[in-house]
Amino acid sequence: MIHSLYLKVFGVGLQDTFVYRWNFVLRSLFGIAPLFATVLVWKAVCEANGAVLDYSFATMVFYFVGVLIVENLASPTEDEWRIAAEIRDGHISALLLKPINYLLYRLTLFVSYRFLYTLLTLPVLGLILWLLREHLRWPTHPSTWLLFLLAVTGSALMQFLLAYSLAMLAFWFLEVSTLIFFLYSFEYFLSGHVFPLDLLPKTVQSVLQWAPFPYELYFPVQVLLERLSTSELLRGFSMQILWIFLMATLAHLLWKHGVRRYQAFGG
């Protein structure tokens, strides 16, 4: 019964997202240009200096392809804006009256968005992989794929819960986009989107490892590159679980207090 309810939500999510199909394809096509710019920068760097730390040019290329794959699978694109808009415009009133858990409802929609986005942009990813085929070093151990899947799942849950919690602020503030961008400006650089985090000085890394950001992109990509020891893997997964727990608690508390304040503007 419960299963079929969320399965329905999943289906609705698919239909809803399908409207944006051209948006997705365009967005991923435009994404090719900066990816190639990054690749060319590292090519120039590696040609002049051999390798940076122990990143060869090929490893660096695969790092950024890995970032792209994890982002496609695990980074929310519209969820936080839609949740915030639903609260602001009073649309959640309808959902409050239904026997449905809002967080699970949103999580199901998130999963269906990511599923469809990944599927629709698969041709573009295929094109990128084909263009860079000479430089890609796929994992040698089959078990790496399983660990990667786990790390991506952890990353997706973290990123979703963070986006959800941020959107909950719409209960208190009329305008949340500035706050969302404020956090994302940290996330963008500290999650490993722009460069691999082990290029940072050791002292910075030792502080950063307690933040959630490295476990959103950098960690799953390192798993895929097979650059982590068993103890580093255990540490990474433990941090993911810890942050998922903390963020889920935060999300729950924000929702509980937010709904109490909720006055259904326009609803």
Binding site: A44, V45, A48, N49, V52, L53, F189, F195, L199, L200
Partner: peptide, 13 residues
């Protein structure tokens, strides 16, 4: 920050 990190490992692009 990116420029700083990059040039802590190299001298020229």
């Amino acid at each position: 920050l990116f420029v700083e990190v990059l040039f802590s490992h190299i001298d020229y692009i």
